[in-house]
Design a protein around this nucleic acid. Structure first.
Lengths: 210, 210
DNA sequence: CTCTTTTTGTAGCAATCGATACAAAAATAC
DNA sequence: GTATTTTTGTATCGATTGCTACAAAAAGAG
């Protein structure tokens, strides 16, 4: 009677029963790509089962529902691609270098580097909240809010460290960089090349001390 | 046998036949709002007929198909709301004032001013191209490209007029302002208040001579 | 009035939507 | 071996999708 907990993933101790015939992680990665490119509503279960190479019952047994699969795809996306944008930011010694890495690495990652993934950010471009799925909408909305929080925290530390003058409006400055990175996703999806987004990043960084 | 040409709208000379019982322009405005908020795929014909206050046969007789209705809604959107963002840009005496008006008016319009319309730009936020409708996708993509073209043309004129130094990278600068306005739509849809987007605009304008 | 034209509401089309019932299949437990 | 458990593929479920056939209704043309 008891079903396997999907959240346990492949680590679930399945001692009995027919073994799963597909790679759950690989299937999740393929579902993530599909949601990333087409969005939630435009991606059908038939699209998913075809891309994942499994039947519908296998999908539902492993992931629960379309909404649950999207939520898990979102977590997979963050776990896999977040570092492309934030690794340099976190390891930078100064706030200016951190923001510079954030914007330049965004220009790179959002245009498909280094593994030719879809253009633009799945979180930034997701409109699932407006499509009538409030719960998933809150999920991506809160994920988008993290960008602002991190920028704000780093800029606050920069003021405390004397890197930025005390009067600097931290919140407005964080919004500024968040806005630019969000815009990059729109431009990237339309095919704007990496070099042009990097030029945008440099332009944004040119006025650090204003 | 001959059907009325939907493109003629209300100006079609209908001398015979039962008169249309609804306001075509009002119905189109309501359809536009729905597509604006929910996007193409997530908006169903049932949603549309309910919001427009008409039956499905009336919708198809007046607008042709869901795709044709979306295309016409897009034109209605541009004709109605474009001026909110571009009027000040076009009438400004200098390029700097033009770009300033473009960004500040965008901050205003994208947060619902002055008539409490949906948040964000319908054109910027549309993902209809990724949802599997290539023709409509090209429509919104080319609409997005207009922003870059206008900025670039105005900045080029500014260089010719000596407002900007000759070495300025016009294309990169235009991309920069386009990127910021695109980002504003993402932030606005998440509820970022107008004042914060205006602060972003001022921050972007602070480095005109860099 | 009758004839023609166009719109209307009802009712329903084939196709697809997300999701499942079911039994064969494939593993372990005993 | 038999019993138990879980996944598999097939074949669907009811609901919804975009769209339309049809006839009554409402207008002008003659």
């Amino acid at each position: 009677m008891q079903k396997s907990d999907p959240t346990l993933g492949d680590r679930a101790a399945r001692t009995r029963g027919r073994p799963r015939a597909f790679d759950r992680a690989l299937a999740l990665a393929r579902a993530t790509r599909l949601f990333w490119v087409k969005g939630y509503e435009a991606t059908s279960i038939a699209d998913l089962t075809q891309a994942m190479g499994i039947g519908a019952p296998s999908l539902y047994a492993a992931f629960g529902s379309k909404e649950a699969l999207y939520a898990e795809a979102l977590r997979h996306y963050e776990a896999t691609y977040e570092q492309l944008v934030w690794a340099g930011f976190h390891s930078a010694p100064t706030a200016r270098e951190a923001v510079s890495a954030f914007l330049l690495d965004s220009a790179s990652a959002l245009t498909g580097a280094p593994d030719d993934h879809p253009l633009g950010c799945m979180v930034t471009l997701s409109a699932v909240g407006s499509e009538g799925h409030a719960e998933l909408g809150e999920l991506v909305r809160s994920a988008r809010a993290v960008t602002l929080q991190r920028l704000q925290a780093r800029l606050s530390a920069a003021v405390a460290a004397g890197e930025l003058r005390a009067g600097t409006d931290i919140h407005a400055r964080a919004r500024f960089y968040q806005c630019i990175q969000a815009g990059m996703s729109i431009l990237a999806r339309d095919g704007t090349p990496r070099a042009e987004l990097e030029a945008v990043a440099r332009q944004a960084l040119a006025q650090w001390n204003v």
